[in-house]
Design a protein around this nucleic acid. Structure first.
Lengths: 417, 417
DNA sequence: TGGCGGATCTCAGTCACGTATTCCCCTAAA
DNA sequence: TTTAGGGGAATACGTGACTGAGATCCGCCA
């Protein structure tokens, strides 16, 4: 079970690695700029000489990852030629495997969704059948999108945890019965012929934010994923933190309410037992705010129940408002634990349930967080909602591929095995 | 208060940086080996060619950071010449500024303490007086140690948080009254003429573990610092996590006991209010296990009271054992929150109070942690006590300098400003 | 139309790593 | 004692990425 990982000594680097790394640095700078950059600006930003920038730009132009997009001349002198990402320079596929629904997307280089599809997860959730369904869906998506298959960098898969990153397996997730140690990565790689990456859904969402989230996806932040469960993705200094086995971000058993309901872990008031949507809906049903006709334990029912709870709150139902507001207090406590542990500068909220709660949460959480922040006198913590939308899971999955291929990760510099 | 940090784009790298980085990689490999490495072994480990290793070895030999230490020939062929760290190749000074006591050390390159001193923190804790005392102490220590001042790489300072890493200031720590925004780094740099680094005590302890802790200081781990308060230092993939302002590792308000005593944060059963030594001693006094003659709120009194509590437990006092054991359960819960959030592979315990509790904690915590670990089915979490000893704070402070100067941090590759 | 300024490119130059070769040192057998 | 052989380490040369200086290109302005 516990294989001993021998301490992997840090490996050196060499010239080609350095060249590739600088290429990704420049691409990253262009990507993060709004509206492109000129070569001189790039030189200032990344600290390399103009000549080096020119050389690398040429490589990027040859690969068609960037394009020259017009000139920008203000005063005298030769106007700067603006370099911009070529959206069609590369594509990535992403799949979010959720217990209820499988979402797939084709993403272009700038992170825009080219094509999108959604199917219900095959009943019984037999792994083989689900994998076959995904492979089918992917093939269809590639055809429908009309994208040049040669430009597809790979397939990213976002799965609920726990996972084993080394093996590329999903390890017995609570809501997918019979999914113990399913070799998702290898199976899908074989079925689709694409290079495949598997990661946890919350991590994928954080990667989506770094790639397609604009300014809020830079630096060090925590992505709070509000889904059927609550988890978080962690990004420190522009690099995603995955943990030893890819399972970082498990915050379900942080205690947020000493007076809360009992949890299956034996304690009381964990995140998991006191502020996930399912619990809020149950509470509302108990209080008679919602009719408890259906037992809303399955994904879609919860989502629907939660929507009605929010509707009630929006139409002024005090009890509904109280439930949501209390959950904001509890979530803020969990967030504070994470931000105090990691001292990040920003918290980004997102996930399928986020849209409905965003207004109330954004109103309350910043103050709650500030009050509980250990470093409050040194720096504030920004609280924002993601701009990526409901499909963060699938988009993030695709971004896993882009990140792996094009992001300036320190890891890229190091020689491997 | 909150200065906006503009997103710093990742900067490129160049040839000299690469060379320096590879040098630190090799030094790191030698440092982490037990008993030195030959050039061929180095080539295998770091992945560079034997020639490159030879070239870099020469640079390291010229700088006298390493020495050739004998040969190792087993079969036919030329025997390997072993390269070892030269302990006298470089020295670093470390100071731990504690509310009660100021510990200073001179460390050599292998992390051994060359000289050591301890003075009580000047009463009234006026910052200027404390800084002057430290500067005096440092000067004395350098003279007494007989170390060549030219070989001293710098001065590290470990301070209780919160701190502001950019400014090098200590920001209003709870136990040092009147220490708001004290420019510790600049003041000590000026007073001693040494390059000075300031960091939080728990972070320093984690750095000590990476530098002087042997195998348990590699990879990804959390260092639990058991002091007057409980904090943690975080190391992911051999690099220390400091956070935006250097305040990562604040875990005092993680709730570990829903039935615990109220905390100044308004909730109940935080780490800070239920399992720090001061609380355990108070509890023992209340139960009559210890005579509550002195009100043990000051550092030394707490330490003494805690020692007597441990004595009682060791001599079989059931109630004393119960207090310690319960604290182990609570600490384990806090640790689980952190390890689940970060998915690390190891927890290292240390700090001034650790020695007395180590036996009971090491007996109980591994099982408790495994039971609460989200990734338990994928990998276990190793639980160990540090080998660094009581002075981790000061030793870690000195290691800050060594780490900054010699560790293969990814940051070192990047061009600056 | 010519001058000017700024951006970009060309062309060496430098430096670190990689490959092939040679040198050196030790073991072991004749 | 001598010699063959094997493996580590150094030397020489080649490659490739970044840097610096000057040339070139481009558009504005007089």
């Amino acid at each position: 079970m516990t294989e001993i990982r021998q301490p992997t000594p840090r490996r050196g680097t060499n010239l080609p690695r350095m060249g590739d790394f600088n290429l990704t640095v420049i691409l990253d700078a262009i990507r993060r700029s709004s509206g492109g950059l000129s070569r001189v600006e790039l030189a200032q930003i990344v600290g390399l000489s103009p000549q080096t920038i020119s050389n690398i730009s040429r490589r990027l132009l040859d690969q068609r990852l960037i394009v020259e997009a017009g000139k920008e001349g203000s005063g005298p002198g030769k106007p700067r030629t603006i370099l911009r990402l070529n959206p069609a320079g590369m594509y990535a596929l992403g799949v979010h495997v959720d217990p209820a629904v499988i979402t797939s997307v084709v993403l272009d280089l700038v992170g825009d969704v080219v094509k999108h599809s959604r199917i219900p997860t095959p009943a019984g959730s037999n792994p083989q059948r689900v994998i076959a369904a995904i492979a089918d869906e992917i093939k269809g998506l590639i055809e429908d999108s009309g994208v040049d298959p040669g430009k597809i960098a790979g397939l990213g898969v976002a799965a609920p945890g726990p996972i084993d990153l080394d093996e590329g397996t999903v390890v017995d997730p609570p809501l997918l019965v019979g999914w113990d140690r399913v070799y998702l990565r290898d199976a899908l790689a074989e079925a689709t012929g694409l290079e495949t990456l598997v990661d946890k859904d919350v991590t994928s969402a954080a990667v989506a934010e770094t790639w397609a989230g604009g300014a809020s996806g830079t630096g060090s932040f925590v992505f709070m994923y509000m889904g059927t469960g609550i988890g978080c993705g962690i990004v420190l200094n522009d690099e995603v933190v995955r943990g030893t086995s890819g399972n970082a971000g498990e915050i379900g058993h942080i205690i947020v309410d000493p007076d809360g309901p009992p949890c299956d872990c034996g304690l009381r008031g964990c995140v998991k037992s006191s502020c996930i949507p399912q619990v809020l809906v149950a509470e509302a049903e108990e209080q008679g705010i919602l009719d408890g006709g259906r037992k809303g334990t399955e994904g879609p029912e919860v989502q629907e129940g939660f929507a009605r709870l929010c509707d009630a709150a929006d139409s002024g139902d005090e009890r509904a408002i109280a439930i949501i507001d209390k959950s904001a207090v509890l979530v803020a406590r969990a967030v504070a634990v994470v931000t105090n542990t990691l001292d990040v500068e920003r918290v980004v909220f997102g996930g399928p349930f986020w849209a409905r709660m965003s207004e109330r949460y954004l109103e309350r959480i910043p103050a709650l967080l500030a009050a509980n922040s250990a470093a409050n006198s040194i720096h504030g913590i920004e609280v924002v909602g993601t701009g990526v939308g409901e499909d963060v899971g699938a988009i993030g999955a695709a971004c896993l591929v882009l990140e792996h291929t094009l992001a300036p990760r320190a890891q890229r510099l190091l020689l491997e095995g």
